[in-house]
Computed example of a mutant assay.
Amino acid sequence: MSRRNQIVLIVMLLVGILIFGYSLRDVKLSAIFHDLATLHWRWFLVAVICIVLYLGLEGVVVKVFMADRHPDFTFKNALRVPLVEQLFNGITPFSTGGQPAQLIAMMQSGVDAGQASSVLLMKFVVFQAMIVINFLFSLMIGFHYIAVKLHALSLLVVFGFLIHLTVIVGLLMIMYWHGFTKRLVNLLISPIKWFRSAEKFAAMKANLDSKIDNFYQESLRIKSEGVKLLEVVILTFFQLLFYYLIPYFIMLSLGVHGLNLIMVTSLHILIVMIISLFPIPGGAGGAEYSFSVLFSSFIGANSKLVLAMLLWRLLTYYFGMFAGMFALVIKPDKIKSGQKGD
């Protein structure tokens, strides 16, 4: 990890401490300690298992994609990929550092950069598609509730959905209308040449064309492997499901009863969408605020609401970051230089 990233990590940890301290300003510490003492640890353990399964299943997805390319690509290597992703997602605005970090993690195992990029891109396509599908269901169930609670911020949810939908539509267009999509992209970027030199514009255009062509070639391969694609879709569905269920089990651990599983899960999906639009790494501030406002109707005691938010944030944000720090220092298993399935 670079010195700059180390500084950002320290800053985000300090920001988290400040946010936690601010959240506790109107809560007696004795009430927090009482809630911790009476915590139903079995339910909290289930929440912990959910985040472990979320990360573990993403490792399984990487392993599935790599199985016919490099049979000796170990699960240890596959698991490093999502863990490193979690760390760099957590310290970069809009989680932009996750994809490059995953690429480096795979290359450290000896995987060719082009092959690793193709695998990560297909994993990203499936992940985005499942996010959009889950969001559509949650929007129908919980949008009215979130509109009442967050007012203008609810527009961020719709905006976030449109961004994710645009991304997945664009990727699907490359898969099924390759030539048309290339021409469309070239048309859309043509105004940029008014502001850049001819050489830089030509280099950018060539780079985009290359990425589109590479993704299209990989998509042909994946489309011919229907069983593998279905396997990845199922794995990703359960991966996201375990993640979305975390608040439900945290509230059960705090003794909150009468919960609507579908509503709680739907609201968490909407919160995740809001977080993705905050430019601050990890959606710091926006994540805590959204959780506290949306789940205040489910948790009556203010001390329990704050504790639920803290536990949720520890599992969904800091757990992955610390696991990623650990993964960084673990030496990957080197694969053989020979490639299969190409």
Rank of each mutant, 00 (worst) to 15 (best):
M12N: 02
L13G: 08
L14H: 04
L14E: 06
V15I: 15
I17K: 04
I17W: 06
L18C: 13
I19R: 05
I19C: 06
F20W: 11
F20M: 14
G21H: 03
Y22G: 06
Y22S: 12
Y22A: 15
S23C: 06
L24P: 06
D26G: 04
V27Q: 01
K28D: 09
A31L: 08
I32Y: 02
I32H: 02
F33W: 07
H34R: 14
H34T: 09
H34D: 15
D35F: 01
D35I: 07
A37I: 03
T38Y: 13
L39S: 02
L39C: 06
H40G: 00
W41S: 04
W41V: 08
W41T: 14
R42W: 01
R42L: 14
V48L: 13
I49K: 07
V52D: 01
V52Y: 00
V52G: 11
L53P: 06
L53H: 08
L53T: 07
Y54E: 07
L55G: 13
G59C: 02
G59W: 01
V60Y: 04
V61P: 01
V61D: 09
V61S: 06
V62G: 05
K63P: 04
F65N: 07
M66S: 03
M66L: 14
D68L: 12
D68G: 05
R69Q: 13
H70N: 10
P71G: 09
P71C: 12
D72R: 08
D72P: 09
F73I: 11
T74V: 08
T74G: 05
T74Q: 06
F75A: 02
A78D: 08
A78M: 07
R80N: 10
R80W: 12
V81Y: 03
V81N: 05
V81F: 10
P82G: 05
L83K: 01
L83P: 04
V84P: 05
Q86C: 15
Q86M: 15
Q86S: 15
L87F: 14
L87W: 06
F88P: 11
G90T: 09
T92N: 11
T92K: 08
T92W: 09
S95Y: 07
S95M: 05
S95R: 10
T96A: 14
G97Q: 02
G97S: 04
G97C: 02
G98R: 04
Q99R: 04
P100E: 07
A101T: 10
A101S: 13
A101Q: 01
Q102M: 10
Q102N: 06
L103D: 02
L103N: 05
L103T: 04
A105S: 15
M106N: 03
M106W: 12
M107S: 14
M107C: 12
Q108L: 12
S109Q: 06
S109C: 10
G110P: 08
G110D: 08
V111I: 15
V111K: 03
A116E: 00
S117W: 00
S118R: 14
S118H: 00
S118E: 13
L120M: 03
K123H: 13
F124N: 03
F124V: 03
F124G: 01
F124L: 12
F124Y: 14
